[in-house]
């Protein structure tokens, strides 16, 4: 964003506090370092939380009185679904920022978010199928929420595919930003229409209910896992951004310095 502004003006901006923050946010080496220092503590915390939550949910909670033990899948199914949906908004908002303010780092964040979101959506779908088989006797049900998750997966894959199709990566970023914004406007409409469509066609034999009355002993590990998945998303996002930054800036001085430091020890 500052590349188009002359050097004299750049000096002026540096004195203003707010602008210097934006300037830092737009500065690859600063972002690379800060992401690294966040990851240094967030990554171990995330892995610990995931392990504790998984063991807690798998071994230390009592089974659901209606579904038995199969409900334990909830501790990965619901968090991955929640974070996958939130991830789309992260991606779209990053895309909007990169479009409006031409902030390159937002473009990096948007590109980094897409594959993680797709992976989490896939986890949600896969574990949903594994949960459905013992509980409702079917791998796949055209339930409103399952169908919506499938559509979310398509939306993510569309963004990834569009990015890969462009040779010019700057244009790719802007095109993906527009696509994810269009998707963001559409997601509520799609979800509402799928919801309504399902209520029209709902088969009488299967009832998806009972989630409202969740016992607190089951709720705490679930909340922990939701938090852990958000942290996981953040970690993956930062790691992807760091890799992307190194690739995009491979010819700059700071990356060369980094390489030399890396080789020193």
């Amino acid at each position: 964003m500052f590349s188009r502004i002359g050097a004299a003006q750049k000096g002026l901006y540096n004195h203003a506090v707010m602008w210097s923050f934006f300037h830092k946010l737009g500065s690859p080496p600063w972002l690379y370092d800060i992401a690294g220092s966040i990851l240094r503590w967030l990554l171990p915390v995330t892995i610990m939380a995931l392990l504790v939550g998984a063991v807690w949910g798998l071994l230390f909670t009592s089974p659901d009185f209606r579904q038995g033990n199969s409900y334990r899948i909830i501790y990965i199914h619901v968090p991955s679904a929640v974070v996958a949906l939130a991830g789309y908004y992260v991606m779209a908002i990053a895309g909007a920022v990169s479009l409006i303010w031409r902030m390159k780092m937002a473009d990096v964040a948007m590109k980094a978010a897409a594959p993680i979101g797709a992976a989490l959506t896939f986890i949600a779908l896969f574990t949903g199928a594994l949960w459905g088989k013992p509980t409702w006797g079917t791998w796949w049900e055209w339930d409103a929420r399952i169908t919506s998750m499938l559509i979310l997966l398509f939306l993510y894959l569309g963004v990834v595919a569009l990015y890969e199709a462009f040779d010019n990566k700057e244009a790719a970023g802007r095109a993906c930003a527009i696509l994810s914004l269009v998707g963001m406007v559409n997601i509520p409409i799609i979800y509402k229409s799928v919801d309504w469509w399902y209520s029209l066609h709902q088969p009488a034999s299967i009832k998806f209910s009972g989630e409202s009355a969740i016992d607190s002993s089951m709720l705490y590990p679930l909340l922990l896992m939701i938090g852990a998945f958000y942290a996981l998303f953040t970690c993956c996002l930062l790691m992807n951004m760091r890799a992307e930054l190194v690739q995009r800036e491979s010819r700059t001085a700071w990356v060369r310095k980094l390489v030399k430091q890396d080789g020193a020890h």
Partner: peptide, 22 residues
């Protein structure tokens, strides 16, 4: 897990694999 074990463990295993990959 009273017969549900294979489903639950496979779900956690796949999730573990994907999370390690990303």
């Amino acid at each position: 897990m009273e017969g549900h074990g294979s489903f639950v463990w496979v779900a956690y295993l796949i999730t573990l694999l994907i999370i390690s990959a990303i």
